[in-house]
């Protein structure tokens, strides 16, 4: 699979234009997952602007909780959560997943509400 033209694929799936981003960092400052990220959301947007396909391998895209705080606050009106989802979706459609049932501790698996399982697997599993 092709990483060629991946930015146009991301634009198509997210219906967002990363080039609108002015790198203010409001998304990073608002992000729930920032404490567990290497590239912050602002940097993810910059890598997309530069067409760097290594962004597809950034662990940061899997730390998103789709809480939509970045989307709510972006002064450029970019739905950043959709961009993050597009980056995950391109991975998931190639079978690259990060949440595997066997890796969830049994103590947690037996206690979590069902919605955690369905939402987690929808967002993080192929």
């Amino acid at each position: 699979m092709v990483k060629d033209g991946f930015t146009s694929k991301i634009k198509e799936i997210s219906e967002q234009n990363p080039n609108l981003c002015m790198q203010c960092g409001t998304c990073s400052a608002s992000c729930t997952g920032i404490g567990a990220m290497e590239e912050l959301p602002r940097q993810v947007m910059r890598l997309l602007q530069l067409g760097k396909d290594k962004v597809l391998e950034s662990p940061s895209i899997w730390m998103c909780t789709t809480c939509l705080t970045c989307t709510a606050r972006c002064p450029r009106g970019i739905d950043i959560a959709r961009v993050m989802e597009a980056l995950r979706v391109v991975n998931l459609r190639q079978g690259n997943e990060v949440l595997v049932l066997e890796d969830i501790p049994l103590e947690l698996l037996t206690e979590v509400p069902q919605m955690a399982l369905t939402s987690g697997f929808r967002k993080l599993s192929a």
Binding site: T32, G33, G35, A36, W62, M63, T65, T66, C67, V98, L99, I104, L108, L109, V112, A116, L117, S119, G120, K123, L124
Partner: peptide, 10 residues
């Protein structure tokens, strides 16, 4: 949210 199963410490 659902990160409790993937990124518990966060």
């Amino acid at each position: 949210s659902y990160q409790v199963m993937k990124t518990y410490d966060l």
